[in-house]
Simulated assay, not measured.
Amino acid sequence: MSVLPRIQEFAEELSAIRHDIHAHPELGFEESRTASLVEDKLKAWGVDEVHTGIGGTGIVGVLHGKMQGNRCVGLRADMDALPIQEATDLPYASKNQGKMHACGHDSHTTMLLGAARYLAETRDFAGKVHLIFQPAEEGLGGARRMLEEGLFDRFPCDEIYGMHNDPNSPEGRVSVKIGPAMSGATFFDITVEGVGSHAAMPHQSRDPIIVATALVQQLQSVVSRNRPPAEPLVLSVTQIHAGSAYNVVPGTASIAGTIRYFSDELRDLTHERIQDLCAGFEKAYGVTISVDLRNIFHVLMNDPDLGREYLKAAADVVGEENAVETDQYATGSEDFADMLKVVPGAYCRVGHAGSVPLHNPGFVLDDGILPIGASVMARVVERRLPVTQ
């Protein structure tokens, strides 16, 4: 493994930065402290321009290479934490009740800071780099808000790269799935409006609980009977709410959940079948059913050429044997997909030590990933914006 020597020299400082961010987690669009830390570091390290308040708490730094050029590479990291109570007993565990960096966004921010420091010192590239620190990745639409506020109009990029830590991969392995890599996601809310009654006289009701529970079962038929067998699809009902007393049949019941898919066509088919099932249940049970289907994440599409270029940059750091093209889909979602719909690029996963999964209150990230990720980001800039002699 060949971390860039200069980055290795300040690896301990990167760990200290991550521990500070980890101890002070902030939820989406609330990352004011984190954004202030990022701003201060970028300015202290000589980044040419630092722009704040983009998409709420987002930051964009602008770096010019040692030679002029007409191309620009974007590097992106997310900054938000999750509403989870930490249970690690780390000396730098969260000081903010009910908030935790359980997904590793503290490491993403730190790795991009490490790449920024190195690139600001060396300037061994031609053209520009845009350093994008994004708020609110965890389902709140931070990428979309930055785009709506003119991110790529103000800071145009020819290509863009992001990364995610991965405790499920071997330590130091960098992987890229070419093409559709991470699922798109729909969140849904379905409300059944029936007729309530005394629980001892259910014949006077149109029981929404009966309808809702039957609907939960039938929704799974979309996966088993409408999805082409070779195409991945996940439909999970994650909430059901109804009633407030032992002796009352309630008037309403609601269910909620998520759909994960890898093609817009399959998404549209699933939406259509859910609507059809609800319409049929309305008629069969004499109730009213409202359906709210909300696209939260697009399918993350890695550009084939740029995905492989990313792996070449990673191979300079972790070796060719640890820079791998994978065929494994990730059914988790990532709003970097929104940026990739506008600018071509790629997203990689970087393995690290640890066995506790992401989004778990006991998740612990291995600091050894920090100089690796920072080096990979720096190398993709140097490779994609070469200085010609």
Rank of each mutant, 00 (worst) to 15 (best):
D264Y: 03
Y246S: 08
H198E: 08
A256G: 15
L293T: 03
R227W: 08
I274C: 09
A279T: 04
A212T: 01
T238Q: 07
P202F: 11
T191C: 06
Q204A: 10
P167Q: 00
Y285W: 09
V223L: 01
V223C: 02
G179W: 04
T213V: 14
D268P: 11
H198C: 08
R225E: 04
S183G: 14
K283Y: 12
A279M: 06
K177N: 08
I274M: 15
I296V: 15
S205Q: 01
A185W: 02
S175E: 15
E272D: 07
V287D: 00
R273P: 04
G280Q: 07
Q204Y: 11
R227F: 09
A253S: 02
E193K: 15
A181Q: 01
H271R: 08
A185C: 14
P232F: 13
I210H: 02
N295H: 12
A245L: 14
I178F: 14
Q218M: 12
D207H: 06
S183F: 11
M201H: 10
K283A: 15
H241M: 07
I178Q: 11
D207A: 08
G194H: 00
K177G: 03
V237R: 05
H164R: 05
F187M: 11
E193F: 15
L269T: 01
A185F: 04
G184V: 03
A245C: 12
Q220A: 13
H271G: 05
T238P: 04
E193D: 15
R227C: 14
V216E: 06
A212D: 00
F262T: 01
S169I: 05
I296G: 07
A212K: 01
I210Q: 02
G179C: 08
A181M: 03
G184H: 05
Q218D: 13
I209Y: 01
Q275I: 14
L215P: 06
M201R: 12
T270L: 12
N226E: 11
P229E: 13
R267P: 00
A279H: 07
H198A: 10
S236N: 15
G196V: 14
S183K: 11
F262S: 00
P170Y: 13
G179N: 06
N165M: 13
R173D: 10
H164N: 03
A199C: 02
S224P: 06
S254M: 07
I240T: 02
K177Q: 09
L293I: 09
T213L: 14
T288G: 08
T288W: 04
G251H: 02
D276K: 14
H203R: 12
G172M: 01
V248N: 10
T258V: 11
A181K: 01
V216H: 06
R173F: 13
P232K: 11
V192F: 07
S290D: 01
H164E: 04
P167V: 02
V291R: 02
I274A: 07
V174M: 09
L293K: 03
L277A: 03
V291G: 02
D268W: 13
E282T: 04
S197E: 03
Q220F: 10
G243Y: 06
T186M: 10
N226V: 05
Q218Y: 11
H271V: 08
L219S: 01
P180L: 13
K177L: 07
R225M: 04
N165I: 14
S221I: 08
A256E: 14
Q239N: 06
V195Q: 09
N168Y: 09
E171W: 12
D264E: 12
Y261Q: 02
V192E: 05
I255H: 03
G172T: 00
G184A: 07
C278K: 03
T213M: 14
A212W: 00
